[in-house]
Write a protein that binds this DNA or RNA. Structure first.
Lengths: 227, 227
DNA sequence: GGCAAACTATATCGCTTGATATAAATCTTA
DNA sequence: TAAGATTTATATCAAGCGATATAGTTTGCC
């Protein structure tokens, strides 16, 4: 298992740097092209290493893909994950509908912010969304540690807003749709931007209309409430 | 251009049948695997023809892909397309918000029904959604003749519901999100079903929770209205 | 029957892919 | 400096890809 050659002597640092370069290049190329279309040669070239380096550090293409998934999960947990725990604790203590509403808005804000963290953030989002639709080798990890927790906390907050003790099927569905709409807006962002542009709207290509989408979602949250 | 050898003698009917079999097999395999991952060999095998038959009828892989796109558009136009024209005419004549609301519900109902027309309907949906996110060779056709008209009529109906003369940026955005949520629910259907199942909900695998999703969307439409 | 047109199948080409055998380079340690 | 572990690069393999040259088969028409 060469992927955890960690606590060794200082010159092996160069090796770890190469490993990190490969991982970063892989994240970008897998995120853009998907598992099947991405080639190990292109990744190696982008990372500035030769082809067998991938085998040396990650065994094979799938190993590299899984390493990318774990990297994404780690980044997610250190960002949104902690906040989710915080919200869960608050829910445990009991929340008013109004409080739940503002928590939910913040959750969705942070979820959408994931796609704007840095330059490659949207590629990581693409990685996750592709894996959710195509269910490749990294699906289980991403579903269990990333997708499910986000939707579940959303469902619980919605239930709270609607005055229910625990989320029923309707709350779960509404949570799914909320995340689905944000996801789809991300993955079809070029199309959405084109549509808005054709209609004469000017959306900043920087944030890709994501904040506008967020406004719509917040309005939806505002309209939630006791039936 | 051998793809329109149509008005010839009767025995060429067999040829047309082969052409149709190739097209159907291609729709299923392209819809499931996408352009890059699908192979002409597998399509030929599924259609029960030999490999050069694809070249004979569709010139090459991309020609076959485009033929699939046009087939999808044709099917869409004879279904939803006519209804969109009908709604557009009604809008021209002036609609009350309540009328617009029920038209909008019917539009979304028909859009979601597209994924349940027949056994291969979800594969066609997958074809379209993949092309919207990856922007392959068939993007222009599908956007112009299928995606844009559906979103636009939705935006106009939303504007009408909200008492506006013509759709502003907010209406366009809301229309986009409405379709995005339905699309994402379709393309991540296995994930959504798993989530609901894990939560103890029983969703019919037949319709894949789409009618439940539609219920949520109708509730959203009901909550629209003058600010 | 024979002939031209429409259609189909076999076999193969050139290319790219993931993987890896092999050997060289680098650096620590003794 | 010699030994040895760690890391890197060259060259190559078998498999699968899209494409197609070539030849065979069917079938309506005269």
């Amino acid at each position: 298992m060469p992927s955890q050659a960690s606590l060794t002597s200082p010159p092996q640092v160069r090796g770890q740097e190469a490993q990190a370069r490969i991982l970063q290049a892989a994240l970008r190329i897998f995120g853009r092209d998907g598992f099947a279309l991405a080639t190990t040669r292109r990744i190696a070239e982008a990372a500035g290493v030769s082809l067998p380096a991938i085998k040396y550090y990650f065994e094979n293409k799938e190993g590299l893909y899984m390493a990318c998934a774990h990297e994404i999960v780690a980044r997610y947990e250190e960002g949104l994950g902690n906040y989710i725990d915080e919200v869960a604790a608050a829910l445990e203590g009991g929340l008013s509908p109004a409080q739940a509403r503002s928590y939910l808005k913040e959750v969705m804000r942070r979820v959408s912010a994931i796609s704007n963290d840095d330059a490659d953030a949207d590629l990581r989002t693409g990685f996750v969304l592709r894996e959710m639709t195509e269910q490749g080798p990294a699906f289980e990890v991403l579903y269990k540690d990333l997708w499910q927790p986000g939707v579940e906390i959303t469902a619980q907050l919605i239930a709270c807003i609607e005055g229910k003790a625990s989320p029923d099927e309707a709350a779960h569905l509404e949570a799914l749709m909320l995340h689905a709409s944000l996801s789809a807006f991300s993955s079809t962002r070029p199309v959405s931007l084109r549509y808005l542009r054709d209609g004469g709207c000017k959306a900043s290509p920087r944030e890709g209309g994501l904040t506008s989408a967020l406004t719509v979602i917040e309005a939806q949250i505002d309209r939630m409430g006791p039936a």
